[in-house]
């Protein structure tokens, strides 16, 4: 490892001394340990027995490792985790697909087509972008109620399928598409939908990938809105996790195991997409 460090140091950043780098790494390691500690504690706790959890003061390493908590959760007929995974997946993926489609189409129209009221519409979209969700939460709830979509997964997906931020982002990226390219295609006789699908979308792909990941992540982790508009079999994972934790307030080892089961898989998936996520965040600053 040290040779790699020294090599690359010499090659790329000659300004830093080897010892300086080591000390920085030594400084970063405790920081990283602190950052990881809650996760580690969660996993370790999920492997403890109930009796050990209730010990005082708390232990760090499990005295007696057990998978029983996981077995218990996975075999709990009252906690069909598969169903909630499916719900979360359906909601997050459909909302994301819808968002991507509406955002790229709307953004492209706003950027590359002229129509009456375009500026006003764009202004509206900007205004909704800065509007906190909590402001429109109440009316959105009432709208779902009137549309009969309350408690249904579609009730979660449809309002999430259009995002002012996404539209704004796609408009900015569409602006960068050369109009000449579009006109050339038109002269070649390409239809407008064809142009959108074959020219605009490919050009927007990097932005779409980033927006898609960010939006999937935020829908997957969403809590407040699903809490309000779902019940029973349509609940998503974060809602189930709080329910389970309330239900088993005294059994922290079970709650921690549930938290591991619910959050770890998606963390792993996201880790693989990290590159695009990072790109998306640096590109947009979006939270």
């Amino acid at each position: 490892m040290s040779t790699i460090i020294s090599n690359s140091t010499r090659l790329k950043t000659p300004k830093y001394k080897w010892s300086q780098q080591t000390s920085i790494v030594l400084l970063l390691i405790p920081c990283a340990i602190i950052a990881m500690l809650p996760f580690v504690w969660m996993i370790l706790s999920s492997l403890k027995t109930g009796a050990e959890i209730r010990q005082l003061p708390a232990t760090f390493w499990p005295q007696e490792m057990t998978w029983g908590n996981y077995q218990r959760i996975l075999s709990d007929p009252r906690l069909p985790l598969g169903l909630y995974y499916k719900n979360s997946f359906i909601v997050a993926s459909l909302s994301t697909c819808l968002t991507l489609f509406t955002s790229s189409l709307f953004g492209y129209l706003l950027a590359k087509h002229s129509f009456r009221g375009r500026q006003v519409l764009f202004g509206f979209i900007l205004a909704t972008m800065i509007l906190p969700f909590q402001v429109t939460m109440i009316p959105s709830y009432l709208i779902l109620l009137k549309l009969g979509l309350l408690y249904k997964l579609w009730g979660l997906i449809l309002p999430a399928g259009i995002s002012a931020f996404g539209i704004f982002l796609m408009r900015q990226f569409s602006l960068a598409i050369p109009t000449d390219l579009l006109d050339a295609a038109r002269i070649d006789g390409a239809g407008e939908w064809h142009i959108f699908g074959r020219i605009v979308i490919p050009l927007l792909t990097p932005a779409i990938a980033s927006l898609g990941l960010l939006s999937f992540m935020s829908h997957w982790n969403a809590y407040l809105w699903p809490l309000i508009v779902l019940k029973d079999e349509t609940r998503t994972l974060p809602i189930i996790l709080t329910w389970y934790s309330n239900q088993h307030g005294s059994r922290m080892e079970l709650t921690m195991a549930a938290a591991v089961l619910i959050s770890i898989p998606i963390l792993i998936v996201f880790l693989f997409c990290q590159k695009w996520l990072v790109k998306g965040i640096t590109l947009t600053g979006l939270r």
Partner: peptide, 27 residues
């Protein structure tokens, strides 16, 4: 490593921290 917490749901984070800070049984 520093990015991992960003990815996790805030509900899971809250439950995790709640236990971390539990007066008797927390780390």
């Amino acid at each position: 490593l520093f990015f991992l917490p960003v990815l996790s749901s805030s509900v899971a984070v809250a439950i995790m921290w709640g236990f971390l800070l539990h007066p008797q049984h927390g780390l």
